[in-house]
Design a protein around this nucleic acid. Sequence first.
DNA 1: GGATATTACTTGCTCACGCAATTATCTGTC
DNA 2: GACAGATAATTGCGTGAGCAAGTAATATCC
Lengths: 193, 193
Amino acid sequence: MELSLDGGDEQLTMVGLLFECASGLRRVFGEQLDRDPALSGQAFDVLIRLARTPEERLRMTELAVWTSLSPSGLTRAVDRLVDAGLVERETCPEDRRGAFAVLSDAGRSLMAEAVPRHADHVRSVVGQVLTPAEQAELQILLRKVRDYLRGASPDASPDDSPDDSPDDSADGLPGPCAEASTILSCPGEDPAP
Amino acid sequence: MELSLDGGDEQLTMVGLLFECASGLRRVFGEQLDRDPALSGQAFDVLIRLARTPEERLRMTELAVWTSLSPSGLTRAVDRLVDAGLVERETCPEDRRGAFAVLSDAGRSLMAEAVPRHADHVRSVVGQVLTPAEQAELQILLRKVRDYLRGASPDASPDDSPDDSPDDSADGLPGPCAEASTILSCPGEDPAP
DNA sequence: GGATATTACTTGCTCACGCAATTATCTGTC
DNA sequence: GACAGATAATTGCGTGAGCAAGTAATATCC
């Protein structure tokens, strides 16, 4: 049985390619990042997210969304970073259930050194594969997918909150800028200044 | 310090978006697949790879590459599938070190039911986000990235293996279909083989 | 022909992640 | 003001993944 090969599964193929690219890039960049002693790819992901936030602090929940981690996963990740001295926890005065993860001085200076190096690496790799025009095109397409996924996040049930319509731009997430997670982006401004 | 926000990091942003898309899609499709008992996203990935191979059998090493898994990771994954009765191990007569993973009858019939359903789901999601033209474009771009990563896998020297051409039919793998891993396979942030 | 290196896979160990349950706090209703 | 329900984060537990080391068979070299 041939299970519909050929061109009948363009979408399946596309998704497969996307997964393959993600894991390949993670490997390539992870290897580079791990040259810094205590800087796994995951750690870098969390740290750059903080570094690129106005006051270098984010609520745990928000950080979890940006890093595509579950709440518990983020708790452990931050635990490790706190142990490593790169991040500090701070309780939220307005809502005492909440906690901020804040970049420490050590974290800031580590990132000041690591980010440009990593960015150069990424630039060089991407530059070898795609022309600037292609890069721009790919970014647009991926952003469409990402925006859709943000909206469809919780569950595609008809019974829940009105925030999952496919075209909305206000899905309860951080600011207008809404950028990529894992390795970068530019969180515009804070939701609740 | 602001760590070069703004438009200076287009490539970094792009890679971040790609990671975010991958993990979002993995979540969405994984949820659906897990409705089948004993069909994790990872399992599906291995199985579809086998199902789409001419004789429904692949050497462990090859399968590891296609699924973006480490050799040990694949060994365990196949162990689970063997326990579940979906795959069988077969020793290679020409090279007695080697082993084939072969789709079992149960595996074949499971996939015969699961693949079309999954493909419909993927089609429907992708169709909601991208026009056919955009899908085609995205696929082309991702394939470029994937092909580069295949070459850069072991060591990033410019003269890589003649592995597979853009339409991949020449990498010793399933002929005309030869596509990406299909669902899932995120090896976290660790370097592979 | 026999020692050495290489390849193909497996096993031991450790660790990161997600799910489910838990604790503490906030919100809403009466 | 007190109780029910929702929300933020953490912890217990199980699982899947990678690295390093181990085993077996093959390839290479003298």
